[in-house]
Design a protein around this nucleic acid. Structure first.
Lengths: 115, 115
DNA sequence: CAGAATCCGGTACGATACTG
DNA sequence: CAGTATCGTACCGGATTCTG
């Protein structure tokens, strides 16, 4: 919050903070609509607790929409809000960069013992 | 690491993880070359420890270049590597999104008591 | 000036149950 | 199926002091 110039960046960080949010968003971006367990299956290492909390935070930021079907057994669908769609460019550029970065890292670390 | 599709995203997250990295990068993006204390002054709330550790991690990822002038008093300059420049689009899109998101949030939260 | 070295607390995250 | 409710821990990040 110190100065204006990077305020936007901080806000974005805040909205996407959390180990799993970008991954969740990425899956929602690809599949449009996903149920809770469907998401969970797509992200094997995540716990229910984490998936729930991260989704709730994304909901708070109006990035993800949570649609509950009042029935038994429960059915809940998650999707990007119209507004949340606007975050896609960030995800895309992250993915693009990440992929090339991964190769870049491998190149340089090939002979370096790391840890 | 579970599946390929979002691997890039995870890598990007990993490289930018940390409370201050995007902010540091943002400043380096704007000012090209900055000395340690110059960076510190630009980010009032950061501690030396954090600034140091975050810079070291960015260095490890070959995003930031650290140039040491062997002299007394010490002089160290930080800058984006050629490769690190490639991360700029992410920062730009984050800033752009963050700014509009901030307004978006304010609109919706105007009457909601939040914490 | 640019850090290294300690110490320390909060919390983000994980593991494991339990439930409507 | 889609969650809550506890509990425990690692570690991230802050405050402070010391140094070449």
């Amino acid at each position: 919050m110190e100065d204006k110039t990077c305020h936007g960046v901080e806000v974005a960080i805040d909205a996407m903070a959390g180990k799993w949010k970008p991954i969740i968003l990425f899956h929602l971006m690809e599949n449009k609509v996903m149920r809770f367990n469907e998401l969970k299956r797509s992200i094997p290492n995540i716990t229910q607790k984490m998936l729930t909390s991260q989704l709730r935070e994304l909901e708070y930021h109006h990035i993800v929409h949570r649609k509950v079907y009042p029935q038994v057994p429960p059915k809940v669908e998650y999707s990007l809000t119209d507004y949340g769609q606007s975050i896609i460019p960030i995800l895309k550029s992250m993915q693009k960069w990440g992929t090339s970065h991964f190769e870049h890292l491998n190149k340089n670390d090939k002979e370096q013992a790391r840890e």
